[in-house]
Write a protein that binds this DNA or RNA. Structure first.
Lengths: 122, 122
DNA sequence: ATAACATATGTACACTTGTTCATATGTACA
DNA sequence: TGTACATATGAACAAGTGTACATATGTTAT
């Protein structure tokens, strides 16, 4: 006869608040949503990308502008813009040789502001 | 006589929207804030930590509960809780042998919700 | 067509990170 | 004091990541 404890294999502890675990298990977002959420925050979790996004919140800019602003290689900025593009956080438009990037999501600023509020409250 | 272009050394492009760059430079948050913000999102940028936080939003839980819920090692959960603790995202209280963790910041849920909204809008 | 220039991309490398295993710490109870 | 148990931590390793260099692509103008 199998008990609940038998089924939960990877916890080597004996004390489990079974009801709490089951309650929370029922409340959790889907595995896919949790994965996607982590992927999104992973994109935010780099200083260069944060800077790029903060800059684009203020103005539309070309790759060269951003590289100059952040004092970084055109190549690295371009690589990071690719990641931001894939995450649908920025969009671009081409004007001759120049490619202009801008923010593609109004929530970016709100998410950043919430993050800054957390930091300010120590 | 030095020009603006001379001072910006790491951009090998010739076209720079000087005014835009200077305007945005004046609007950017401090280097420290940007760094801290990236560090915060780096903490969110892992599936295990996201899951732990989502779980703790629902209920206070002990390490063992979380390990059972996520079907993971007690050790790895403990390591991740340490990171969350350092980021002031969770707090803990000891009751005998058991250590109970809970959310230490009301903004966590709001930040997650904003993230999920971004994902839902494709 | 060719040169000049803005941007994109492939590759390589140093560095970071999450997990596991082994073990230490801390608490309760006999 | 000794045992059992919940949690914390150190070390090691595989896997992932950001940057720079070299080069390709795409656009304009001569």
């Amino acid at each position: 006869m199998k008990t609940e404890k038998d089924r939960i294999t990877s916890c080597d502890c004996n004390l489990i608040h079974k009801e709490t675990v089951e309650y929370v298990a029922g409340k959790m977002p889907s595995e896919e949503d949790l994965y996607d959420l982590a992927e999104l925050f992973k994109v935010f979790g780099d200083t260069t990308r944060i800077k790029i996004l903060c800059a684009l919140v203020e103005a539309e800019m070309c790759v060269c502008d951003i590289a100059a602003l952040l004092n970084m290689t055109q190549s690295s900025i371009s690589h990071q813009l690719r990641i931001l593009k894939q995450a649908r956080l920025v969009r671009y438009r081409r004007d001759g040789k120049v490619v202009y990037y801008s923010i593609d999501d109004e929530h970016v600023k709100q998410i950043f502001d919430q993050g800054l509020i957390h930091l300010k409250e120590r």
